[in-house]
Structures are given as C-alpha cells and as structure tokens.
C-alpha cells in the first residue's frame, strides 16, 4: 500500500500546485485590465479624492504581489472581497464606503448551491442512463441499435447546448405544457417544486453529458472485451453473465470511473449556457452577467471556483483509477 499512498500524495500535491498556478494565471489576467478599476467604476468626472477612497477600499493602492496574496488568503477562507457592482451602487447612493459593499461570497454562496443542485440532478439521471446505454451498445456492437445510438449521440454531442435547450423547451414547455421553461428558483421553495423547475435545464445537460459518457463507456467496454482474458473466460465455458460481471466489470471500473469524473467536469462548463437559457439563478449565470458588466472580483471568484471544481474532478478520476489498478494495489 506504500506505493499507492505515495502516488496519491504526489497527485494531490500536483493538484494543489496546479490550482495555485491557475490562481496566479487568473489574477494576472485580470490585472492586465487597462487603467484603474477605481476610475472605470466612477467614470472620468470623478474627483481624485473619491478615486483614492475607492482605491483604498479595494486595496488597489498596494503592490500586485501583496494584493495577490491578500486575495488568495481570503479565497482560501471563502472571502472573495467585495463586488464592484455593489461598490458602484454604494458610491452612487453616497453611503459611507465600506459598509455598503456586499461581499462576493454572499452573492455566490446561494447560487453555488443552486448550481450544485442542478448538476447533481443532471448527474443522477445521466450516469446510470449512459452507463447502461454504453454497455448495451458495446455488447450489441455493429447492430442496428448500436448504429442508431451512435448517430444519435454524435448529433447530440455536436449540437450546441442552447439548441438542445430550445428543442426541449419547445417540446416539454410550449407544445406540451408539462414543465416550466423558466427556472426561477428562490429560497424556501419546497423540494418537489424546486425539482420541477430544475428538470428541464437538468435534462438539457443530461442529453449532452449522456452522449459523451455513453460513447466513452462503449469504447472502454469494447476495448476491454477484446482483451485475451475475456476470450479465455469464454473458452472456460462460463455463462455470458458471469463473463461480464466477474471478468469484465472489475476491470471496467477504472475506465468507467474515469469517464464519469471527466464528464462531471464537463458538466461544470455546460452549466453556463444552460443556466442563461433557463434563467436559472446559478453561478454560471452570475458569471456571465459579471463578465458583461466587468465586475472583476466576481469574475475572478467564479473562475477560480470553476477551475477548482474542474481540477478536483480530474484529480478524483486520477486517484480512483490508481486505486482500482490491481498492479498498484498488490505490488510484487
């Protein structure tokens, strides 16, 4: 077990290092903005005193390096600083600077929960569905079923998310008024209500992710079924069920876990467009809105959260596939 622990520790360290460097990249990118945040917030007619005040509030008068570490230190504690949009608003209302600023964390937290809910619903539908379809397509490969599924998934992967979203809205919300086309979720909603409003965006994500996951599962299983030990199991006269369950499945676990984690990582980016289509109050929509109004602290924070989730899922895939490798679990 020593080697496995060592490899996993290595991967974890590498993941944290990557995240650290990614945070530098994000911070540097944002600091490439022309001019000064403070000036762009207040406009050109602002008095030098007001600009200086805002600069002080936002910590813009410090060196980039110390600003970076302030930001990173805050981010680790869950404090992403103050939103510019709110700062802007505060300066207009003339209220005392500082007290009128809403923290980015306050803005993000509920939306983050909403996004997690959406992604989980999509994953709960997509994972079992795509694994089943993928295994079936692999078992009946080159049959009519396999070809139809191949064309359908290829089309689904290739289509932009908003196309699938509008088709679903067309069928399930407009032509047949079964589900709401707008997902206006608010706090204190009952769970079934919330689920009903989340279902269409979740289905859209499911369509995209299922196609990917199913194709990868199919490829992994076909690859596996071609290995000599599966032929050996068949030549030992074992029943097809036993060949699959006992000989294929334990070895398929690693690739399948990998496929699932990779696609959950994909889900994270898919969320952005889908949330905008359905006006779903999640982190993706917040991100897009902040990009449009250039609310940099929010953009920075969302970007870091997306990247962290992405890295974390890829890391999980990596570690799980290490754990399921018998060569590593039982060294010589």
């Amino acid at each position: 077990m020593g080697t496995v622990a060592k490899i996993i520790a290595q991967r974890l360290g590498l993941g944290i290092l990557t995240l650290f460097i990614v945070s530098i990249v994000i911070f540097t990118a944002v600091n490439m903005l022309p001019g000064d945040f403070a000036e762009s917030i207040l406009g050109q007619g602002a008095t030098p005193e007001a600009v200086a005040a805002i600069r002080r509030d936002l910590g813009l008068d410090q060196s980039p390096v110390s600003r970076y570490f302030d930001w990173l230190g805050g981010a680790v504690r869950g404090d992403f600083g103050s939103s510019f949009a709110q700062a802007n608003f505060a300066s207009f209302t003339g209220s005392d600077s500082g007290s009128g600023l809403t923290s980015v964390a306050q803005q993000i937290a509920p939306r983050f929960a909403n996004t997690m809910f959406l992604a989980s619903v999509a994953a709960i539908i997509a994972v079992p569905l795509s694994l089943t379809l993928g295994v079936l397509a692999a078992l009946f490969r080159n049959s009519v079923f396999d070809r139809v599924v191949n064309i359908a998934t290829l089309s689904s992967i290739s289509s932009p998310e908003f196309f699938l979203a509008y088709v679903l809205i067309l069928v399930f919300a407009v032509l047949n008024p079964w589900l709401p086309s707008l997902s206006n979720i608010y706090e204190g909603m009952s769970f079934p209500e919330r689920l009903e409003k989340t279902l269409l965006p979740a289905l859209t994500l499911t369509l995209v992710v299922t196609a990917h996951m199913m194709r990868m599962t199919r490829a992994a299983i076909i690859n596996l079924l071609a290995s000599p030990y599966i032929e050996m199991a068949r030549l030992k006269g074992l029943s097809p069920m036993r060949v699959i369950l006992r000989h294929a499945l334990p070895n398929a676990l690693a690739p399948i876990v990998n496929v699932v984690a990779l696609n959950l990582a994909y889900l994270i980016t898919g969320v952005v467009v889908v949330e905008v289509v359905f006006v779903y109050p999640g982190i993706g929509q917040l991100f897009v809105d902040s990009v449009k109004i250039r609310d940099i602290p929010v953009v920075q924070a969302c970007c870091l959260i997306f990247a962290a989730a992405y890295i974390l899922l890829n890391l999980t895939a990596d570690i799980l596939s290490i754990l399921s490798n018998p060569r590593l679990r039982h060294p010589r």
Binding site: P228, Y229, E231, L235, K236, G237, L238, P250
Partner: peptide, 24 residues
C-alpha cells in the same frame, strides 16, 4: 457448447500474462 468448454475441452493461450484476468 458452454457445457463442453473448460470442462471437456480446454485452451492454453500464447500469452499467459494477457490471458489471466489482472483483477483476480
């Protein structure tokens, strides 16, 4: 056929390393 294979007719493959299931 399944009742014969393994029981009355057995097979030894070229590459034992590939023909044993690595998981068991």
């Amino acid at each position: 056929k399944r009742n014969l294979l393994g029981k009355r007719i057995a097979y030894v493959a070229q590459s034992a390393a590939a023909s044993f299931n690595p998981a068991h």
